[in-house]
Simulated assay, not measured.
Amino acid sequence: MFLSELYRYPVKSGQAQCLQDSPVGHLGLMGDRRWMVVEEENGRFLTQRAWPRLGQLKASDGEAGGLLLEAPGLEPLQVALPSADDDLRGVTIWRDTLRVPDGGDEAATWLSQLLGKPVRLVYCPEQRARYLPSGYGLNSDRAAFPDGFPLLLIGQGSLDELNRRIGRPMEMLRFRPNLVVQGAEPFAEDGWKRIRIGKLEFRVLKPSVRCILTTLDPATGERSPDREPLTTLKTFREKEGDVLFGQNLAVDGSGLVKVGMRVEVLE
């Protein structure tokens, strides 16, 4: 088995970046979901579930550790990296509330124009990262702005089997993984507890619960009229009301992962 694809998402619910290698640490891939768009009024997080136009948002590394934002019809914008303790804003992501630095008025205006709604851009410094959901991982495990866990892994074989059942190809990016593994049987990752990629060991914490976001075409933002792939997933991947696809991970230590690296199951 080997690591066949590697993705990060600089802004939560924005477009993916396809990588050939990446540093990885306890918050996951470097720069992954460290930024997030929230409602200006109450700090509640926004995603493509309700705001599909976020799928048009392209974010990449900017100057001096900041962010470069691009979207159709808007001029590119450089966003400076805010100080970890200045201009803190209260935000809510699912059941978590935290105070994180605001990305500034210029970014807020730019994103509000994109979405047609007053919003702010916020950043998660390492020292303000969240604990994982109760009952999962170690006390030292943290996450920035993913739904709950630092890393998401999906087996290519699992997607191939899903596509076979649907009868047409679904893009891997509908599921927004960080790590894609090739060479395993469909859903083999369900049985893994610990794996090694290169020199790094990863702990498999829990299956990923899938939502309506998977029905959005990652290129166009259009929703599948037949609600695929959720419709088919519900026929064989539903457990206690949750539709499961992929596995959430945490990493022990830090290092570099590269496409092509061997993946070993340790437990």
Rank of each mutant, 00 (worst) to 15 (best):
G104K: 06
V181L: 05
K12W: 12
P150Y: 00
W192D: 06
K206E: 07
S158H: 10
T92C: 07
I166D: 05
T231D: 03
I212N: 11
W94L: 13
A64I: 03
F187H: 06
G198N: 07
Q48R: 15
V181C: 12
R34F: 13
R164L: 13
V181N: 00
G116M: 02
V79K: 03
T232C: 09
L173K: 12
V259A: 02
M36S: 06
V122G: 03
V181K: 01
L249N: 06
M261R: 00
L152V: 05
R128W: 02
M36A: 11
E75Q: 10
I154C: 00
R95F: 08
E171Q: 15
S140C: 02
E267K: 11
Y9C: 07
A59T: 13
T232A: 12
A108Y: 01
F145Q: 01
R44D: 07
D147N: 12
T92M: 10
I166K: 02
K193P: 02
L98E: 03
N248L: 09
G221V: 11
L68N: 13
A16E: 09
R53K: 15
V257W: 00
Q127E: 07
D242T: 04
V204K: 07
Q182K: 13
L153R: 00
C18M: 11
C211L: 14
Q56M: 14
R165S: 10
L256F: 03
V243P: 03
D21P: 02
E39M: 12
G103S: 10
R168F: 14
P186F: 11
N163A: 06
S83Y: 05
V257Y: 00
P118G: 05
L121Q: 00
E70P: 02
L115Y: 03
K58M: 15
P125M: 02
L230I: 11
S208P: 04
L152H: 10
T92R: 15
I195N: 01
P23G: 01
F202L: 14
G25V: 05
E5C: 08
I197P: 00
S13K: 06
R34Y: 11
R142A: 05
V209T: 15
I93K: 02
L67W: 14
V11I: 14
R49N: 14
M36C: 12
L114T: 07
L159K: 04
R227D: 15
P118E: 04
E267R: 11
K206M: 05
F245P: 02
P101S: 04
A250Q: 04
R223L: 12
E75A: 15
G137S: 03
V263N: 00
R128G: 00
V122L: 04
E238H: 04
S140K: 03
M36K: 07
T235S: 14
L54Q: 10
P146H: 10
V79T: 10
R176P: 03
A80Y: 11
E39C: 10
N163C: 15
E240P: 04
P76V: 13
E75F: 03
S22W: 00
P76Y: 14
A16V: 07
S134V: 07
E264G: 02
A188P: 04
E189A: 05
A80R: 14
P52D: 13
K12P: 12
E106S: 09
S13A: 15
E267I: 03
T231G: 05
E264D: 14
P186R: 10
C18Q: 12
M261W: 01
P186W: 13
D87F: 09
L29S: 06
C124E: 01
E185W: 06
Q15V: 06
Q113N: 05
R165Y: 09
